[in-house]
Simulated scan of single mutants.
Amino acid sequence: MRTRVKDYVEVSDYTSLDRLITTLIAIRDSLPESAEPSMKMRGDDVFGRRLSISYWRELTAEEQAADLKYSADRRAGEEIAALAAKLDGVPYEQDRPTGKRKAA
Rank of each mutant, 00 (worst) to 15 (best):
R2I: 00
T3G: 00
R4Y: 00
V5C: 01
K6M: 02
Y8W: 05
Y8K: 06
Y8Q: 05
Y8L: 04
V9E: 06
V9L: 06
V9G: 03
E10Q: 09
E10M: 05
S12P: 03
D13M: 09
Y14M: 06
T15N: 05
S16L: 09
S16R: 08
L17P: 06
D18A: 12
D18E: 14
D18T: 14
R19E: 11
I21V: 12
T22Y: 08
T23G: 02
T23A: 02
L24N: 03
I27W: 06
R28K: 12
D29N: 14
D29V: 10
D29A: 08
S30V: 03
S30R: 11
L31S: 00
P32L: 00
P32H: 03
S34M: 13
A35Q: 04
E36C: 12
E36K: 15
E36D: 15
S38A: 11
S38G: 12
M39C: 15
M41K: 14
M41V: 15
M41S: 13
R42F: 13
D44F: 12
D44H: 04
V46E: 11
F47D: 07
R49A: 05
R49G: 02
R49K: 11
R50Y: 12
L51P: 01
L51M: 10
S52Y: 07
S52Q: 13
S52N: 11
I53M: 13
I53N: 05
S54Y: 02
S54C: 09
S54F: 04
W56M: 09
W56C: 00
R57D: 05
E58N: 08
E58I: 04
E58M: 09
E58Q: 12
E58C: 06
T60I: 08
T60E: 05
A61P: 02
A61D: 11
A61G: 08
A61E: 12
E62D: 10
E62W: 05
E63F: 06
Q64R: 10
A65K: 07
A65W: 01
A66T: 07
A66H: 12
A66W: 10
L68Y: 11
S71F: 06
S71K: 03
S71P: 01
S71G: 08
A72L: 14
D73A: 15
D73N: 15
R75N: 13
R75M: 14
A76V: 11
A76P: 08
A76Y: 13
I80G: 04
A81I: 07
A81L: 07
A81M: 10
A81G: 05
A81R: 13
L83S: 06
A84N: 07
A84D: 09
A85W: 03
K86A: 12
K86M: 08
L87A: 02
D88S: 05
D88W: 01
D88I: 01
G89F: 00
G89W: 02
G89V: 00
G89I: 00
V90P: 02
P91D: 01
P91N: 00
P91Y: 00
E93P: 00
Q94M: 02
Q94K: 08
D95W: 05
R96L: 10
R96P: 07
T98F: 07
T98I: 12
T98A: 02
G99D: 02
G99L: 09
R101T: 14
K102Y: 15
K102F: 11
